[in-house]
């Protein structure tokens, strides 16, 4: 009962955060909201007893992703360009997709039931064989590093490839004759509200 209550509270927070992130125009605040979103998801995984996933989500999602987003924000404008009006087609597409997904959840097996595919497929093999095979209690580590070792090697090379891609993009020092350097790429922007509050310099046009 209390677990259900925690789940519902966390999920409600997630929905509120998601709506906030969509509505917000300040990208710095949006980055912070994403960090909170990851932290709440991590709490949700912890409630589900998925310790490894919770730790990863907290470290990668809430920690390093936020840092990288902030590092990116040092290079771009802080406020999203305001777009006027509403995109009705997008709303319809999203509503239909959401309705279909909710409809699909009706076919999901009952949460935690003993005859779930997750409980009867390869799960029992790992549960029975991990300790006799390896002598270590953490099955997730055993599956990642030994049973599914080649998958993990692929992941490591994906991480390495990400570093290569960023290196290829950002390692060239900008010099004065590069096309983009001509004009100042990023102004220290004020928020739209501040910009409205500051009156444009009025004296200049009227000056004789």
């Amino acid at each position: 009962m209390i677990e259900n209550l925690i789940d519902v509270a966390l999920l409600v927070f997630l929905v509120i955060l998601a709506i906030t992130i969509v509505r917000i125009r300040d990208l710095f605040a949006a980055g912070m909201m994403f960090a909170i979103y990851s932290l709440l998801s991590s709490a949700l995984f912890a409630v589900l007893d998925a310790g490894d996933v919770a730790l990863t989500e907290a470290a990668v999602g809430a920690g390093i992703s936020t840092l990288l987003v902030l590092a990116c924000l040092a290079l771009v404008r802080r406020y999203e360009h305001p777009t006027g009006g509403h995109n009705l087609i997008a709303l319809i597409v999203v509503l239909i997709t959401g309705a279909l997904l909710v409809y699909a959840t009706l076919d999901l097996p009952e949460f935690g039931a003993a005859d779930n595919p997750a409980q009867v497929h390869v799960g029992p093999f790992y549960i029975e064989n991990t300790y006799p095979d390896m002598g270590i209690p953490n099955m997730v580590a055993a599956v990642l590093a030994s049973y599914r070792s080649i998958d993990t090697m692929g992941e490591v090379f994906v991480v390495f490839a990400a570093a290569l891609a960023v290196y290829a993009l950002l390692s060239v020092r900008p010099h004065k004759n590069m096309p983009g350097v001509r004009r100042r790429p990023v102004k220290r922007l004020k928020s739209p509200r501040q910009a409205e509050a500051d009156p444009p310099v009025a004296g200049k046009e009227q000056a004789p």
């Binding site: 390093i64 840092l67 990288l68 590092a71 990116c72 040092a74 290079l75 095979d133 390896m134 002598g135 270590i136 580590a141 055993a142 590093a145 030994s146 070792s149 993990t152 992941e155 490591v156 991480v159 390495f160 990400a162 570093a163 960023v166 290196y167 950002l170 390692s171």
Partner: peptide, 29 residues
């Protein structure tokens, strides 16, 4: 198995740590 897992995980940790540092350095620089 334990030796293998520890070595392999150390490789993973090395790559992930340095890649995270590298990305941060490249972006801030």
């Amino acid at each position: 198995h334990q030796t293998g897992i520890i070595i392999v995980e150390f490789g993973v940790g090395l790559t992930v740590a340095t890649v995270a540092m590298l990305l941060f350095t490249l972006f801030t620089r």
